[in-house]
Amino acid sequence: MIQVSHLTKYYGARSAVEDLTFEVAKGEIVGFLGPNGAGKSTTMKILSGFMPASEGNVTVAGFDVTKNPIELKRSVGYLPETPPVYGEMTVEDYVEFAAKLKQVPKTQLKKAVTYAVDRTGLGPVRKRLIGNLSKGYQQRVGLAQALVHNPPVMILDEPTVGLDPKQIIEIRELIKGLAGDHTVILSSHILPEVTATCHRIVVINRGKIAAVDTIEQLTSRLRKGLIYSMTVKTPLIQGIEALKQVSGVQSITQAGPKLVIEMRPGGAEIRDQLVEIAVAQKLGVLEFSAERVSLEEIFLQLTTEERPA
């Protein structure tokens, strides 16, 4: 549905995005993840036809962004960082204006407006001036504008920024509900955001793609070796030493009653053995678990250190 190849964008001499290549399949939700200023917004502006690229090809829904910009824009719903809403209009008038701009046929205008308003939960405020609404509602109005013409592709730039937790969950559910019929790209610098909604993530840093993968794949790829943590009642020295002797254990660090056991990568499954020894050594096991590498860690690894290719 979306093909981006060798996309580069210069602002003057400075490049904001460099040689970006990725694809998004129909019905997928893809998250754009990166620190502030990584080039997420720039990429999304180019994908939506708002801004021309300096180099490279972008095709959305089968339309080239430079050759068929009008057709491309008709099949894209774009929510910019700042929702493009007019404070002096009512919600309903605004959504209707957006529908007309996006050339929704006259006969379906009412239906399209009702659909977008209901879908984004704006029903109760439809007659109110947008300028008097809270940031969260304004964000939803922006979202309503993006989906009023039922576009196959939706590009959402930080859709949940400035919302309260309840609204965030609602918007996430809304976006998840869009998958299947719509192809969605959304950007975020907040990680749980992406884990909660996206099938696949594109990690972008300093204008370059750092990784494109599913969340599970990324997690396992970057896990440097399993880490188990064991909380014990009596952390006896000889008991810890005995655990260290188990093959596959790289190191054990002790912090009070908590033992962090780092394994060598690619080792066999030995959790059983570890617990048996701990019990035999009378350490008094209270808790034993495998630590998960969080997305934050993946993110930091990808964006802070230069990974060997």
Binding site: G49, P84, L101
Partner: peptide, 14 residues
């Protein structure tokens, strides 16, 4: 100023 120009520029209008 209000960035609403994005709506016009991403609508299928010349």
């Amino acid at each position: 100023k209000n960035k609403t120009i994005a709506l016009l520029f991403t609508a299928p209008l010349t």
